[in-house]
Simulated scan of single mutants.
Amino acid sequence: MSISVQVQTADFSVADEYQQLSRHSHCGAVVTFCGLVRELSNGNLHSMTLEHYPGMTEQALQAIAEQAQQRWQLGAVRIIHRIGTLTPNEQIVFVGVASAHRAAAFAAAQFVMDYLKNRAPFWKKEHSNHGEHWVQAKATDQQALQRWE
């Protein structure tokens, strides 16, 4: 199994990441997810700054990918999470999973995102017309995690 974890400021190409995942000839399914900076409901978001804890973040992402592998037979897992200042509609996160079968690929991709949202040490600060504020954890994210425990 191949695991690739990256935390970076640079953008990424979903097409390139898909190509890397689809090279595993024993895999019949590739599932990808790309998260974007979402506009606030009032339409006033200028940017979002993402911070992380270097070293610890990569270890947490690696552990999440390894947990997914323990639950499902996967050919590959790729996780990319950007840091720095991003503007609306820019890519934040990529999760890709290759597996022999689609059910495992879908489940593993969702598992990785649910754990990443709740367990990876990232912090987000929104910058809007109304000032700056740190984004708090959402109850819906924590509820999504509970189904895997």
Rank of each mutant, 00 (worst) to 15 (best):
C27L: 00
T49K: 13
A139Q: 14
H26W: 08
W123S: 02
I83P: 01
S41N: 15
A144T: 06
I3M: 01
L74W: 01
T85Y: 06
A137R: 10
M113Y: 05
A68Y: 00
F106Q: 03
R119T: 03
Y18F: 14
E51W: 02
L50V: 14
E51C: 00
H127F: 13
K138E: 15
G96N: 11
I80D: 02
W134G: 06
P88D: 09
G75Q: 06
M113N: 05
Q20D: 05
L74N: 01
L40T: 15
F106Y: 15
Y115E: 13
H130N: 14
Q69S: 13
T32D: 12
A120E: 11
E90N: 01
Y115C: 14
Q136Y: 09
A109D: 06
I92T: 06
Y53S: 02
Y115A: 14
T87N: 08
L61F: 03
S13C: 04
E17F: 07
F122K: 10
Y53A: 00
I83V: 15
T85N: 07
A144F: 02
A68M: 04
Q91Y: 07
Q146D: 09
C34D: 10
L116N: 09
V97N: 07
H133F: 15
E149Y: 07
V14D: 13
S25W: 04
V37G: 03
A107G: 07
K138F: 00
E132H: 12
A144P: 10
A108W: 11
K125W: 03
D16W: 00
A120R: 06
L145Y: 11
Y18K: 15
G75W: 07
K124S: 11
Y18C: 14
T85L: 00
P54N: 06
T49M: 09
W148E: 11
F12P: 10
Q8E: 09
D11P: 00
A105I: 00
V7P: 04
A144L: 12
E17K: 15
F106R: 05
F106A: 05
H26F: 08
E149D: 09
V7F: 02
M48T: 04
I64E: 13
T85I: 04
G75P: 01
T140I: 12
A104F: 00
Q62P: 00
V30F: 03
T87A: 13
V93Q: 05
G35C: 09
